[in-house]
Design a protein around this nucleic acid. Sequence first.
DNA 1: TTGCAATTCAAACACTTGTATGAAACTATC
DNA 2: GATAGTTTCATACAAGTGTTTGAATTGCAA
Lengths: 220, 220
Amino acid sequence: MASDHTRSAILAAAERLYADRGFGDVTLRDIVAEANVNLAAVNYHFGSKDELIAELFVTRSIATNRERLRELKAAEEQGGGRAPIEVILHALVGPTLRGCLGPENQRSTAARFMIRASIESVPPIRRIKNREIDHLRKFAGAMRRALPDRSDVDIYWGLNFALAMAHHTIRESERLTKLSDGKCDLDDVEDVVARVVSVATMALTAGRTEAKTPSKVAAR
Amino acid sequence: MASDHTRSAILAAAERLYADRGFGDVTLRDIVAEANVNLAAVNYHFGSKDELIAELFVTRSIATNRERLRELKAAEEQGGGRAPIEVILHALVGPTLRGCLGPENQRSTAARFMIRASIESVPPIRRIKNREIDHLRKFAGAMRRALPDRSDVDIYWGLNFALAMAHHTIRESERLTKLSDGKCDLDDVEDVVARVVSVATMALTAGRTEAKTPSKVAAR
DNA sequence: TTGCAATTCAAACACTTGTATGAAACTATC
DNA sequence: GATAGTTTCATACAAGTGTTTGAATTGCAA
C-alpha cells in the first residue's frame, strides 16, 4: 500500500487544475508540477491520463448518485413505497445543483470540477456518463409509481426535461447571469432547485398532453 | 477570387468529418485527405484550423438565428407588435430542433455538425456562442411584451428553461431513446417542439411561482 | 544488516499536432 | 507569349503530447 501520498497529491492537483482551466489545456506535466511529483508517477499510479480523469469523475459522481438515491429512498419509505412527484424530482436534481452552484467564491474544487465535466465532455467522462442509464431508470420507476396514470412516454419526457433544466442551468450559469444582468440569482441554490422542480412537476402533471401535429394543430 | 473550389472542398470535408467523428480526433491531415487538397491549403485559405471551425459554425448558426428572427418578426407583426408566448417560444426553439433532430438517416451533414458542436464545445465555438447574448435579448424583449405582468426574473428563467430543454434534448437524444426503449420518438420533430413549447409556456404563465423552500422565505 | 519489493526519478522515446517556407504550377492580363 | 498575381505542393519545422524505461532510492520484514 505504501504512502499513498503521491497518489492523492496527484488527484488533488489534477482536480484543481481541471476545475480552473478545463481539460483542454492541462497537461500531465502541469499536473505533476502542481503536485510536486515526478512525471512518471501518473502512469505508475493510474495507468494513464484517461484513467486518472475517469477516477476523478467517478468518485464525484457516485457521491452525487448516492445522495440522490438516499433522498429518493427516504421519501419512498416515508410514503409507503410511493413518494410525491415533487419530492422525487427534488431528489433527482437537488444534489447535482447543490453540488455545482452556490456562491462562486465558496464553491468547492469538486463542484468546479463537475461543472467543467458537464461543459467539456472529454472521452473518458463520456464513457462513464453512458453507464448512468441504470441509475436513471430507478428514478423513472419511482416517477411511474407516483403518477400511475401517466404514460411511460410522458414520464421519460418529464425526466428528460428535469435533467435538461438542471444541467443546462449549471452549464450556462455564467451566461444566464450576464443575460439577466444579475437579476437571476444563481447563488440561491434552493431557489433554483425549487424552480426546476416546479416546472418539471407541471410538465408531468399538466392535463393529458395529446401530443400530435404534422402541419400544426390547435389545442394542447 | 479564383476557383474557390479548394476552399469549399475543405469546408465540406471538414463539416462531414467533424459531424461523423467529432472535433476531438479529426486532424488537419484528415481533412485535407478527405478533400483531396494539400495540407497547406487550410492555412492558406482560412488562416488557421480554429478559423476554419469558426467559419463552419458561424455559417450554420447565423442561418438558424435568421430563421428564428424571421419567425419571431412575422409573429409580432401579425399580432400588432405583440405575439402570443407560445409562438415566441416556437420561434426560439423550433429552428434549432428542426435543424438537429429528425430521422437520423436523412439528417443533413449540417445538422450532425451542429449536434457535435453542441456536445463538444471546442474553444473557437465557445467564443462565438458567447456573442449570442444580444440575439437572445431580442427574444427576452418579445417575451416581456407578451407577458407584461411577469417579472424580468421569471422571463429570463423561462427563456433559460426553454433553451435548456431544446439543447439538452438534442445533446442527449441518443440517451433518451435508449432510456425510454425507443418510446420517445425523437424523429417526430414537431412533437418534440410542441412538448418543449408547452412546458416552457407553463413555466412562464403558471400562477405566480412562489419558489420557496424549507427554511426559506415566502413571497417573491 | 540483508534482501526484496514498492516507489521515485531523470531521461528519452515515439508520435502527432498545427503551422511556415519557398519553389513550382497555374491563370489571366496586357 | 511574357508578366504578375494566385494558388498549390512537398517538405520541414518546432513544439508539445502521453508513455516507457531502467536505474536509483526508499521502506519494511526477516
